[in-house]
Write a protein that binds this DNA or RNA. Sequence first.
RNA 1: GCCGACGUAGCUCAAUUGGCAGAGCAGUCGCCUUGUAAGCGACAGGUUAUGGGUUCAAUUCCCAUCGUCGGCUCCA
Length: 598
Amino acid sequence: MAEQERYEDSELYRVRHSAAHVMAQAVMDIFPEAKYTIGPPVENGFYYDFDLPRTLTPEDMKLIQKKMRKTLSGKHEFLKKVLSADEAREIFKDQPYKLELIAGLEDGGFDEYGNKLDEKPEISIYEHSGFVDLCRGPHVESTAQINAKAVKLMSIAGAYWRGDENNTQLQRIYGTAWNTKEELDAYLWQLEEAKKRDHRKLGKELDIYAFDEEVGPGLPLWLPNGAVIIEELEQLAKQMEREAGYKQVRSPHLTKESLFIRSGHLPYYAESMYPPMEMEGTNYYIKPMNCPMHHKIFAARPHSYRDLPIRLAEYGTCYRYEKSGELFGLMRVRSMQMNDAHIYCSEAQFEEEFMAVIDLYMKYFEIFNIDKYVMRFSTHAKEGLGKKYIDNEALWLKTEEMVRRAMKNGGVNFVEVEDEAAFYGPKIDVQVWSAIGKEFTLATNQVDFAVPPKFDLKFTNAQGEDEIPLCIHRAPLSTHERMIGFLIEHYAGAMPVWISPVQAMIIPITDDHLDYAYEVKKKLEKAGVRVEVADDSARMNAKIRKAQKKKIPYMLIVGDAEMEAGSVALRMRDGEDKGAIPVDDFAALAKKAIADRS
RNA sequence: GCCGACGUAGCUCAAUUGGCAGAGCAGUCGCCUUGUAAGCGACAGGUUAUGGGUUCAAUUCCCAUCGUCGGCUCCA
């Protein structure tokens, strides 16, 4: 396979970066008193952030686009000039954000996002048709290289200066830019297609879940179809966990405050927890995580090294107070049921246990044909020690090395990302993308070296001494909410047979075939197939259309011929007509598809 | 939570400068009895998210609240 060109090195990257400058020029033209900040290329386009005297309107967008087009119709060269910090300060003396950037560059400290740089950078400006911006480039040679017909402004959004919510909120304009009009159209078409896959749209159409204003935001109601999917996922998890030596446990949704103080969730996690309720002078919290309960279950009985590892599993229901603007369909909710388990093991057992969890992930990915994901190894950051991370650098480094070694020995590809760990240890997150391109952590596999000692967890080792176990937190099937949201999009609503809420729809051609249809239904139900009869007054064609729109895997058409032969005419949801087959044969076929989870 | 947009029947969407709130699909009831993506007809369906305000008159203009969406922040 040929080496792929890095996006940052591509022509398109320079086109987008340059288009951002042209847009900034248009905005500054309309608002001369505005302050401009930064405007980088991003995936599929670019943005630029401004501090403006008033909020932008759709009319402004039109005007900006018009002005951009005018600039792009000419051939204006992008000229780079390297200068000193003082010279730069003189040019941008009325631009406070630029002055801040210059100061960062001068210190050799920080780039435009406030991230640390390794080397002291040079300070440069780019100028085109009289517009000057502090910028390290690269750009196209001239505006003639930007196709005005392939540039489109997409949306306005709020964004914090340097991504910090304590800073001023700026107005961000997003645009997209391509080499040709055809590429732009293809991109816009792709966006439309993605919307059709959106789990929020399909979840409604397929009657999987609903939100109700009166129930509350982020609190999904599972409709019968959704509940079927949940049931199947739990069956799968229970089977896999049984085979992998897990034990099922159960724990309450509510506990005393002291438990979460001990676990370290309070006060650090309080922002994400529902506020406490007071009973008889004691505060109780609804759990945002299951771990403290599982630790208590472990601690409820003494353990010998001979018992380890101990693997405690529970599809635990948790509640987290996500900020209102962060909610997103099923992917980000306030009530969730996690495919949770905690594995308590000795240090010697760690690598094998950790990799057994990764193996479990792989098995699930195979079942669901999930191949577009990134395993992210999330480590601590030194600056966060004692703040967002437990203050024990030696243990961090040690456990991180354990994970790194385990992953390498297991031959698993991963990317390492600093400052993404849990407060109690490093983790492997499985990153996936929603239909509309949002990134999510689907599954997670975390090491916990910090909390077991807090809970006085121990086992008796071979020498008869107390030893503290390590804990692995894992959730390979994520939460029901996120997993099902993901699966809806992954399959574009056409769920595999085994998790399809309705697996077969029997479609009688006329009412004369209804009795036979019910007879077939009974037989198939006996075989364990979720089947319904389309017994409404619509015509066969309409019934097929309806079943097709509900993405039901099998349509069984029954008429005179089938009734006589004891068969069904099988139509697949992709439109393929398999012709008539004996009912028993179909039952066997469906049974096999369900058993194989295909 | 913040910035912005939006909220009309179960769903998808109309409604002129403020002047009687409408259609398709779904639903119900009839008729038709049909061979692989929509048969025909009738009926029913609404305090235009909620609460205030302006006005002779508000779906339309203003304010607040709730919710949804696009981002930011945050995250399983």
